[in-house]
Amino acid sequence: MPATRIRLGASSTAIMLLCLAAFAITACSGGGAARKRDADGRIIPTLAEQDPVGTLYAKSISDAARGECDDRTLDVLTCFSYRGHGYEGAQTALGQCLIATGSNSEGLVWINRAAGAGWADAQKLLAQLYLAGDVTPRDGVQAAKWAKLYTRNPSLLSLGVQPDRNFTLAFEGEITTGENAEADRQVAAWSPRYWVPTTQVDQNVKRSCEVEGRRPPRTRQDVPLITVPDVY
């Protein structure tokens, strides 16, 4: 795999600082009177204070969905993506950002990893990319395969989620009978595969993201301290 944005020398520090900054902002903003308190008068921590890492994860994916793919977002998504199975959302978002910033082949690698693990959004995106043929050469078989896997994705069906009608309409008349038959064959043989870092480069990038969380400084007497969990 190509070297994955190895601007990561400072990314682990950046992520930790972002987590701590989230604490500082949420703990100090609004003043004590504006914060909710419990029956004993103690300030109730916000969701961001209770789970700064989760908040950072969600914000980075949301930023990627809006096309806000600056270096910070790329670094954060890269570190989460290298955690492997369970972080397919970050892998999909990283792939989107890489494509948005011109690294098409590397972006497709990450989207394929997430789609191969069964992540519905990645499967849908891959189908669209193979059908359009802009980011990667058009491939009707792969487009139909990932479209079928997306529309039959058990994680969506279990929630009663129906595929986007505009998505299904885009495939009408675009796939030949032969392509459709081959796609059916590949879908029948498909099973999820979960990516884990294996190469030396993978391990080096993963280690560069391994930092221990620290407690933020206590800024107010009445703001309870919350230990930041290990980020990686």
Results as ranks from 00 to 15, higher is better:
residue 68 E to Q: 14
residue 71 D to R: 15
residue 82 Y to M: 08
residue 66 R to P: 08
residue 58 A to F: 03
residue 51 D to Q: 07
residue 53 V to P: 00
residue 64 A to D: 05
residue 80 F to P: 00
residue 54 G to L: 03
residue 83 R to N: 07
residue 61 I to H: 10
residue 75 D to G: 14
residue 56 L to H: 01
residue 55 T to W: 08
residue 60 S to L: 03
residue 65 A to F: 08
residue 75 D to Y: 09
residue 61 I to M: 15
residue 78 T to H: 09
residue 54 G to C: 03
residue 67 G to L: 11
residue 70 D to I: 11
residue 84 G to L: 08
residue 67 G to R: 02
residue 51 D to S: 09
residue 72 R to H: 12
residue 64 A to P: 07
residue 65 A to S: 12
residue 51 D to F: 05
residue 70 D to M: 12
residue 52 P to Y: 00
residue 83 R to D: 06
residue 76 V to T: 13
residue 48 A to R: 08
residue 74 L to Q: 10
residue 71 D to A: 15
residue 84 G to A: 06
residue 80 F to Q: 02
residue 80 F to S: 03
residue 53 V to L: 12
residue 60 S to G: 08
residue 63 D to W: 10
residue 50 Q to D: 07
residue 51 D to C: 00
residue 61 I to W: 07
residue 58 A to R: 11
residue 57 Y to V: 01
residue 74 L to V: 14
residue 83 R to M: 02
residue 70 D to F: 12
residue 69 C to W: 10
residue 75 D to S: 15
residue 76 V to R: 05
residue 81 S to I: 06
residue 79 C to M: 01
residue 48 A to G: 00
residue 79 C to K: 00
residue 75 D to P: 09
residue 75 D to W: 11
residue 64 A to E: 05
residue 71 D to F: 10
residue 54 G to M: 05
residue 53 V to I: 14
residue 63 D to Y: 12
residue 53 V to D: 01
residue 73 T to F: 07
residue 83 R to T: 08
residue 68 E to H: 13
residue 55 T to N: 07
residue 66 R to E: 15
residue 64 A to I: 12
residue 52 P to G: 01
residue 75 D to R: 14
residue 70 D to A: 13
residue 58 A to M: 07
residue 61 I to L: 14
residue 54 G to D: 01
residue 84 G to V: 05
residue 72 R to F: 14
residue 55 T to Q: 06
residue 55 T to H: 01
residue 63 D to R: 13
residue 83 R to F: 00
residue 56 L to T: 04
residue 58 A to I: 04
residue 56 L to V: 04
residue 74 L to M: 15
residue 70 D to N: 15
residue 71 D to T: 15
residue 84 G to E: 10
residue 68 E to M: 12
